[in-house]
Design a protein around this nucleic acid. Sequence first.
DNA 1: CAGCATCCAATTAGATACTG
DNA 2: CAGTATCTAATTGGATGCTG
Lengths: 137, 137
Amino acid sequence: MGTTSDLRFHGGADAYLAACPSRQVLDVLANKWTLLVMGALSGGPVRFGALRRRLDGITQKMLTQTLRTLERDGLVTRTVYPTIPPRVEYAATPLGASVTDLLSGIRVWSEEHIDEILDARDAYDARAAREPRPVTG
Amino acid sequence: MGTTSDLRFHGGADAYLAACPSRQVLDVLANKWTLLVMGALSGGPVRFGALRRRLDGITQKMLTQTLRTLERDGLVTRTVYPTIPPRVEYAATPLGASVTDLLSGIRVWSEEHIDEILDARDAYDARAAREPRPVTG
DNA sequence: CAGCATCCAATTAGATACTG
DNA sequence: CAGTATCTAATTGGATGCTG
């Protein structure tokens, strides 16, 4: 079940440690496009073009890159139907589905609290404009 | 309640739209350091130096930058005690605390499923090495 | 339709030096 | 201790052109 040199931290993963592989998972999950892609797949398989239209502002390159990463990590499957023109469907795996709700929670929270955040931002910026230079101490 | 040109999407925020301000919130929350910082503050106020030691691998610059962003968005407070040497404590606001559990959920999920992800990654890479070039169709 | 490949601009992040 | 300032290296991301 893993030697001392095994980089897999069996039963003791800690994302606060830089060398822990779970840190790499955070790099994938803690990402705007990952979050939106997984949410878009929560209702079932979606075609590449549909995803691109749904994720307003994403480029083809970023969508492809995000999907490849998710596929590699086992969160998404890619199914090619050899028709002409080709049709490719993406779907969440059971593993992916198990994290989708957590990710969607972040998105929903953002949508629900956007006004409070914009207010806080305005207040902070106004205060910063008034004060010349709030030195360290 | 906001005019047509009001950029605040009152009651209709949708992070799937590029122009929706909630998209900016995702940029802040869907970030590795934000996630770890908020988790580190879940138990109460923490000093700058303690945060830096806790978040293994973070640079002083990134920690400062992350904390400033969180402070600006009203998720974190910064309290300076005018002692010598100075002492600065960071703490989650009620707003920040309300999203911390969601963020910590992502971290815990990463730690719990790291082995499945590493296995999927290995399988994907092995397959990619075997297949010369899996053309589009 | 669903990509890949390439080039390039912009942003980000690290290292280093200095301060109240 | 808790920063700021600056310079540079690396990464990211966008635009464009081409293909099965």
